[in-house]
Write a protein that binds this DNA or RNA. Structure first.
Length: 466
RNA sequence: GGCGCGGUAGCCAAGUGGUAAGGCAAGGGUCUGCAAAACCCUUAUUCGUCGGUUCGAUUCCGACCCGCGCCUCCA
């Protein structure tokens, strides 16, 4: 079955392929760098990472643009309060975002672009919109007139036909002709930073950066535009209005949106004390892989309940996979090929791909892997797992890990070298042979304290780092 | 009120018009000098509630209840 995604625009699952030359042109909304990103943000970014990796695994090339919003009201407010320049202020959180992404093994997009790098392009776009009759100016700010765009509401499936400019009563309060109109360019208030421009000094509104940068790097029509559900309205709706008014072309063919994340069954909020940044979780000693696993194990279109129990569960599940991989690599396997098992391996790989192809159904894909692991472990225990079965099994794990990327442990601080560990293991084996179990156990415990786990198996001692 | 998503075992969660994947947790067992790892068994006659269609519905239709999101720039 071919790759297919749920498209917010059509509200249907549709078969996906890029429009031209096998390269997927995609855009996703990045962070606003006014603070550390929280775990809810990373649910969406982790989804984007899975999306990227699966598109590549499906044989497509990638051209992905993500913006970094480094100018907006909150940033200005905070920077002014701290007597810092915008760029000094945002540099800290931009770097923090990059570090966090690396920790969670999120691939960088092909283009990661700060909005402030394209202010000139935004001004040019606003001028073009103005000459097309899509804007008006009020007290130095430029607004987009949604009445000039007939398709407004097609993404969020809202019907705005009943809302007419004449019905407005609070015009003096909003300075807008219609409450739904939005700012393209904001005139500066006293003490606020501003860019000089033909349309008057000011700064870009939030929505214009995405339209301008997407079109500039990827062309008029994107294959995929993705983000969190809360961006559907008004942000993405406004992007469509701007972009399509600008180019006359459909802005994006597929719109994908990740659902919300909750913490311990409640919405995340600072007042409830369940508002976590990645740093908060790492400080509690959580492995980054467990966080990554938990974030992507629930299919992206389903709300995710992020819990401490879930984090533990994720870590244990990863261990199960790692242990299986270690067994494949270290057990002495009898020669030959177990034909039925080889069939099962192929079937598991097929089911894995089928799950991912089905709108990134990660739960289904994971089930395929785990079911296979159990069957393979049984065969391993029974001595029926043959040497020639191992490559396909390892390949299945590689396919899994190319997307989920959780098998390799994050490196912890200084540890014993392999040689030191081997020497201690040999010492313990000698003690065991002499039936000095107290000494053997003491060595095992010492190694455990240093993060090395020993396991006695039929084919000798196996060790692994915690 | 409008738009959208969802309610499946203790927790997370897949799924189909034909009789409930997978992970974690819990209890029991096998293996082991003891562990660890692994495996086996047990844990939903039942899929929010009530009706309807059907030979048969968790899966289709209707109503209702509950949770969540968006509808003032929040992933």
């Amino acid at each position: 079955m071919a790759l297919r995604f749920y498209n917010t625009l059509s509200q249907q699952v549709e078969e996906f392929a890029p429009a031209r030359d096998n390269t997927v042109r995609m855009y996703s909304c990045g962070p606003t760098v006014y603070d550390y990103a929280h775990i809810g943000n990373f649910r969406t970014f982790a989804f984007l990472d899975i999306l990227r990796r699966w598109l590549r695994a499906s044989g497509f090339g990638l051209d992905h643009v993500m913006n970094i919003t480094d100018v907006d009201d909150k940033i200005i407010r905070n920077a002014v309060a701290q007597h810092k320049s915008l760029s000094d202020y945002t540099a800290v959180y931009t770097q923090a975002f990059l570090d966090d992404c690396r920790t969670l093994r999120l691939e960088p997009p092909e283009h990661l672009v700060p909005a402030t790098r394209h202010v000139d392009d935004m001004v040019a776009a606003i001028e073009k919109l103005s000459s097309g009759g899509h804007t008006y100016t009020s007290e130095g700010s430029v607004y987009f007139r949604i009445a000039s765009f007939p398709g407004y509401g097609k993404l969020s499936h809202n019907d705005f036909s009943g809302i007419r400019a004449g019905a407005r009563v609070d015009m003096d309060e909003y300075d807008k002709a219609d409450a739904r109109d939005f700012a393209l360019w904001k005139a500066p208030k006293e003490g606020e930073p501003a860019w000089p421009a033909s349309i008057g000094p000011g700064r870009p509104g939030w929505h214009i950066e995405c339209s301008v940068m997407a079109i500039r790097y990827l062309g008029a029509t994107l294959d995929i535009h993705a983000g969190g559900v809360d961006l559907i309205f008004p942000h993405h709706e406004n992007e469509i209005a701007q972009s399509e008014s600008l180019t006359g072309q459909p802005f994006a063919r597929f719109w994908l949106h990740a659902e919300f994340l909750m913490v311990e069954g409640q919405k995340m909020s600072k007042s409830l004390g369940n508002y976590y940044t990645l740093r908060d979780l790492l400080a509690k000693g959580t492995a980054p892989e467990a966080i990554r696993y938990l974030l992507v194990s629930v299919p992206y279109r389903k709300a995710l309940n992020f819990t401490m129990e879930g984090l533990k569960s994720a870590a244990t599940a990863i261990d199960r996979l790692r242990n299986f991989k270690l067994r494949l690599e270290t057990d002495k396997l009898p020669e030959g090929l177990n034909q039925p098992l080889a069939g099962r391996t192929a079937a598991a790989a097929h089911q894995f791909r089928g799950g991912m192809d089905d709108d990134l159904n990660t739960a289904e894909a994971l089930a395929a892997v785990f079911e296979y692991v159990r069957e393979a472990n049984i065969a391993l225990d029974a001595g029926e797992f043959r040497a020639a079965n191992a490559p396909a099994a390892l390949d299945l794990l590689a396919q899994f890990d190319a997307v989920f990327d959780v098998l390799k442990p994050s490196v912890q601080g200084a540890a014993l070298t392999d040689e030191q560990i081997e020497a201690r293991v040999a010492e313990r084996t000698a003690a065991k042979k002499a039936r000095d179990f107290a000494r053997a156990d003491q060595i095992r415990q010492t190694l455990l304290d240093q993060g090395v786990i020993l396991e006695d198996t039929k084919s000798g001692v196996r060790w692994k780092r915690k």
